[in-house]
Write a protein that binds this DNA or RNA. Structure first.
Lengths: 111, 111
DNA sequence: AGAGTGCCTAACCGCTCGGTTAATTAACTA
DNA sequence: TAGTTAATTAACCGAGCGGTTAGGCACTCT
């Protein structure tokens, strides 16, 4: 797998379980057990998902007695948003209409 | 791999080669050969990347003689942006300060 | 000290990914 | 018709993913 930061973040987000974990963490800190509750999945599987999220910088982890609380760390999502925004003109309807207009004008001037 | 639409898109974006291909297509239609030019990679490798992008709905493909031109189809990126925006409050500095303030107030009222 | 809880590591499994080379299809060109 | 170019498919490979079970460590509770 690619190891550059943005690729790590996108790869981490390419799994519904991990996106659900992030959504849960948006409501506040949680333990591994709390995070695993909604899923029909073993503990180690959740631990692996958390490791992927941590490597992507999307969560940080603490220690409190036998618990290892997870905390959302959303900064990398700003990069995701910024990257996608570069393409806004290609999905925004008004831009599409503008593009079509410019294309028409160009074709007319080419005649 | 997960096969839900958003996961397919994130997975497609989790590779620098594919992101570079999308950036190139933002400048306009291109053939497979044109797309493969910047990369030290065989043709079939590019074909596979294009297949991943097509399955994610990020490109569409045409036919012109022996060429199979690729066209950017950025609509799925709107979903990516929208998903990330749900977390804006967690990376935006002003929101962070607001959160800290609210936390302080809460702690004081708890005393 | 002993039992129970929370979480992790280790080892394993089937599958997919990202790449290769070789062969093939499809279209243009001389 | 033969040759060239564009792109694909097929078969293969090493590595990593996403999951499992088994076992172990750290901490709390009695």
């Amino acid at each position: 797998m690619a190891t550059d930061p943005l690729s790590l973040v996108f790869a981490a987000l390419a799994d519904p379980t991990r996106r659900a974990i992030l959504a849960r963490l948006a409501e506040g800190e949680a333990t591994v057990k709390e995070l695993s509750a909604p899923f029909a999945m073993s503990g180690p599987a959740i631990t692996k998902h958390l490791h992927v999220l941590e490597r992507a910088g999307l969560i940080t982890r603490g220690r409190e007695a036998q618990w290892r609380p997870c905390l959302l760390s959303a900064a990398p999502l700003r990069e995701v948003s910024a990257w996608a925004e570069n393409f806004r003109q290609f999905w925004d309807a008004s831009y599409t209409r503008l593009d079509a207009l410019l294309e028409e004008m160009k074709e007319q001037s080419d005649d």
